[in-house]
Computed example of a mutant assay.
Amino acid sequence: MHSLELLLDPASDGAVRDEWRVLSAAGLPSQGDHVGTSNAPHVTLVARPDLDPAADPRLLPLSEALPMPAELGGLLLLGSPPRGLVLVRPVVVTGELLDLHARVHESLGGAGDVPHTTPGRWTPHVTLASRLTPDQVARALDALSEAGVPSTRPVVLSRLRRWDPGARTIVPLGPVAADAEADERDGAGR
């Protein structure tokens, strides 16, 4: 699926990656197990079979709403067996976040969104682990608790990007200053 995603600022990104490491250290599946350059803690705004790159210029101005403070809530499970359970940190929904989500969808138009990304049904979250069994969920909760992971966590949503799985490319969509800083920090681009 193609997606449009909100990335976290460096401190928030690091805090979520610490939670990934706790799960990995406990011998559990974790998003940290994915070593691809596109793997980063994020909140999916839109997921659909195709996102036309021609929409990028319309999306870029929407990044002016960033950075945006947010809060990750307590642990939540999505999915169902047999595919596996997904352990996430939901994003506490605010009017500002819902407005950004609605403006993104208005800008894109069209249909075909994955249901949990459509306006009115959107479930904003940051994924910690996928394809967990019920036993692994219990172990994950224990590991995170023992590591002192807080039940809620303030974060900053700082950048917008588009993921194109066909081309396996990340397209930064702003804010422009944050993209330049990220490229410099990551060694000149993705």
Rank of each mutant, 00 (worst) to 15 (best):
S3D: 09
S3G: 00
L6E: 10
L8C: 11
L8M: 11
A11T: 13
A11W: 11
S12L: 07
S12Q: 09
D13S: 15
A15D: 09
R17V: 09
D18M: 14
W20C: 02
W20G: 06
R21I: 10
V22E: 00
L23G: 09
S24R: 04
P29V: 00
S30V: 07
Q31Y: 13
Q31C: 13
D33G: 12
V35K: 12
V35E: 13
G36A: 13
G36V: 14
A40S: 14
A40L: 14
P41Q: 04
V43Q: 04
V43C: 13
T44E: 01
A47K: 04
P49H: 08
L51P: 07
L51G: 12
P53H: 07
A55E: 14
A55S: 12
A55G: 15
P61I: 01
P61A: 10
L66E: 05
L66A: 07
L66D: 05
M68S: 13
A70N: 04
G73R: 08
L75K: 03
L76I: 13
L77Q: 06
P81W: 05
P82N: 15
G84H: 03
L85M: 14
V86R: 12
V88D: 02
P90M: 14
P90S: 15
V91A: 15
V92P: 02
V93L: 15
T94G: 10
G95C: 14
E96D: 05
L97D: 10
D99L: 09
R103A: 13
R103K: 07
H105N: 07
S107A: 14
S107T: 12
L108K: 01
G110D: 08
G110R: 13
G112N: 15
G112Y: 05
R121I: 14
P124M: 02
P124S: 09
T127E: 08
A129G: 07
P134M: 11
P134A: 04
D135Q: 15
D142T: 13
A143C: 01
L144R: 01
S145K: 08
A147M: 07
V149W: 03
P150T: 01
S151C: 00
S151G: 11
S151Y: 12
T152F: 00
T152W: 00
T152K: 01
R153F: 01
R153E: 14
P154I: 11
P154H: 02
V155R: 00
R159E: 03
L160I: 03
R161S: 05
R162S: 04
R162E: 02
R162Y: 05
W163S: 01
W163P: 03
D164P: 05
A167D: 05
T169D: 00
I170N: 12
I170H: 02
P172K: 01
L173D: 02
P175S: 09
V176F: 11
A177C: 08
A177I: 04
A178H: 02
A178C: 13
D179N: 03
D179G: 07
D179P: 02
A180H: 10
E181L: 03
A182N: 07
E184W: 06
E184C: 02
D186V: 05
D186T: 12
A188T: 14
G189K: 09
G189W: 04
R190E: 08
